[in-house]
Design a protein around this nucleic acid. Structure first.
Lengths: 227, 227
DNA sequence: TCAAGTATGTTGCATTTACAACAAAAGGAG
DNA sequence: CTCCTTTTGTTGTAAATGCAACATACTTGA
């Protein structure tokens, strides 16, 4: 196995495929591997995406341009991560984002439409990849739904409580650890960091929550009326 | 063909399958059909979704409960529409929403996990359904991404411009028709309706846009600096 | 332990938005 | 046309948030 394929072990698209089979599977799937120089465009804004991408090495940035023409970084890609899969599978004609390499990078491209049409005649890898892809896109969907539920709240306090409620359900506890510092949390909730700190303090003073660093407790007295 | 299966013609999951084949396909897929009384729970909050649902007749409501315990209607389901597909395919353990029949209703349930494991040995319908499902979930993903980009804006004006920019790209024009009245637009942007009207008027007065009912024009002088 | 750097909290003020109440305009049915 | 309903716009005020500037606490590495 080429060493740059090892990273596929971290890619959920290849769950259930043995590392020893990667090369065989990729051949069978008709994948293409390409190298990119620093700053080179991996997927161009406005282009029609034709294949699902997987970053094998290096790093890349997914960005869009907002209504004021400002570049807006949506995500940083690390090796093993997928990109462009939603737009490709949805067959959008003009990519509303671009993917640019931050450093010398290699990427793998899989023509999923071709893969789907080969579905019956082909090797078992086809089925595994398709099942994995469905699961990946569906999970992203669920995550997007949850964030949308948060951003849909008009008041910061409701955003915070909705955000925490998600972790409470998953961690089955009213005391949760979140994977963000204040800066990141403010970005996630789309609010100002200092305003977030102020609101958190108010909520503490009013007896709704306790917190220390990234550990938050929603106080049980209030939970009964919350969930 | 049973008459209540005709509605599958409007369901994108069955694109590419002839109506005459519906019954055969559903048999082969191992689908289950169930009837529900008025107000009966079709999918229960907190349950583990096992199958993708399709409403065949009647109507239903998808709802969640917010942090204050208030019921929140997320969508109304009409015949032919899918429900629970993201949560099922993402294998979430506790459904964060519920589906309740508004009137006597019939629904079809397809065990997609079983369908995926049968992928190679089975009939061509399997492949079609899987491809369609990938496309459906991916499209929803793209839509959610776009709405998220809108809701992420902190100022109403930026939400409005981001919203309009999406239609401008799709309609390839700076004069677009939107499928919402003011009330619905306010809901979509998660802002107050009267505040929306006020902001739209300000934007008109400042020369950014023109509008009449659901027709909006983003003025070209400003577009150059926008896109 | 100290110093520098980073993260978080606090405050006052400016801006934005929600909210409520009402006004005006647009449609529809008779 | 007129009345009624629905939709959209306007305005003033209160509330929420952004923003900037600064204070405090926590980390880290020498």
């Amino acid at each position: 196995m080429e060493s740059n394929l090892r990273v596929l072990q971290t890619c959920p698209l290849f769950d259930g495929i043995a590392p020893a089979d990667y090369e065989k599977a990729l051949d069978c799937l008709g994948s293409i591997q390409r190298s990119f120089a620093v700053g080179e465009t991996i997927l161009a804004l406005g282009s029609a995406p034709k294949a699902v991408g997987i970053l094998l090495s290096g790093s890349a940035t997914i960005a869009s341009y907002d209504a004021a023409g400002h570049r807006n970084v949506l995500a940083k890609l690390e090796p093993g991560e997928l990109f462009g899969e939603s737009y490709t599978l949805a067959a959008v004609e003009q990519l509303p984002v671009e993917v640019i390499g931050n450093e010398a990078a290699e990427a793998l491209f899989i023509d999923f439409q071709a893969l789907l049409s080969d579905i019956l005649t082909a090797c078992p890898f086809h089925g595994i990849l398709i099942g994995n892809m469905l699961s990946i896109v569906a999970r992203k969907n669920v995550q997007l739904n949850e964030r949308q539920a948060i951003l849909a709240k008009r008041r910061m306090r409701d955003k915070i409580l909705t955000f925490l409620a998600g972790y409470m359900v998953r961690q089955k506890s009213n005391a949760v650890a979140i994977p963000f510092n204040r800066d990141e949390l403010a970005d996630f909730l789309c609010v100002d960091r200092s305003a977030l700190s102020a609101e958190l303090s108010r909520m503490r003073d009013e007896g709704w929550i306790q917190f220390r660093k990234n550990h938050f407790t929603v106080l049980t007295d209030n939970i009964s009326s919350i969930i």
